[in-house]
Write a protein that binds this DNA or RNA. Structure first.
Lengths: 129, 129
DNA sequence: CTGAACCTTCCTGTATAGGGGAAGGTCAAG
DNA sequence: CTTGACCTTCCCCTATACAGGAAGGTTCAG
């Protein structure tokens, strides 16, 4: 199948598919005599896997690693488990950071309701911050 | 004071200060006969304000808006309050998104502990995702 | 044979907040 | 008078996951 059909089937764009090939996520497809990429249906499975990886917040580089391991004939499962663990602690850290920021922000916002705006002097620019 | 002193006093770099000027966050400083930027101490206050804005998660563009309002002789307080509100709802949305992702990830990770890795077939690449 | 729809490669741009470094000018001390 | 520390402008680079578009080739229907 040609790249346009594949893109539609995988709910993505031809741009993206060429980009994936460029980044080593898709192996170079066969070519028709005219020079068009000619895909087999297992590529669709591969793209779906990539999408699941993205849905899990993995970067394309990380997904590529997994695919490389599989392409070397090994099971990437342990590596995937490690990636999931790393992602989880990362996300927890991010959530905490955001919550800290949220607290700061809420404090400022709250203060803004209790401070007279007219007391805001020029040199401090704005009392609310 | 010269840019190096100011940078040290404000705990930042000369690169950053020139960048701020470039982006309209700092007004063009006076120059010495030799062409060096010559800052007055109120610039330090301004930089501190910028830092507080950044600590509140505002972008430089948003901080610039506040400064512009103040530089037009008006009190930016209402605008700041609006920005804080917007930031708050934004951050809440981000936190929810991250928590959703965390749930997805935790589900995958949990499943990984209950699924036999050996049942992972080549064509699905990895059962854990 | 021609036009539309598809494909090819290649180059540029996106947003953010600066960092790195080149080529050259300025200022004080020794 | 020179050396070193500072300053100037200018231009390129960073990460991420593509999108936009140019210039040209291919394929199929009518």
């Amino acid at each position: 199948m040609r790249i346009g059909e594949l893109a539609e089937a995988a709910d993505t764009t031809t741009k993206t598919l060429r980009y994936y090939e460029d980044q080593g996520l898709l192996r170079a497809a066969g070519r028709t005599p005219g020079g068009y990429r000619d895909y087999t249906t297992d590529t669709l499975t591969r793209i779906d896997f990539i999408h699941r990886g993205q849905a899990a917040g993995l970067t394309l580089a990380q997904i590529r690693q997994i695919l490389d391991i599989r392409d070397h004939g090994q099971a990437p499962c342990n590596h995937v488990r490690d990636l999931l663990d790393t992602r989880l602690t990362d996300i927890d850290r991010q959530i905490h950071q955001l919550q800290d920021l949220r607290d700061t922000l809420a404090g400022l916002r709250d203060r803004a309701d209790h401070v007279e705006p007219d007391t805001c002097s020029t040199d401090q620019i704005c009392r609310y911050l």
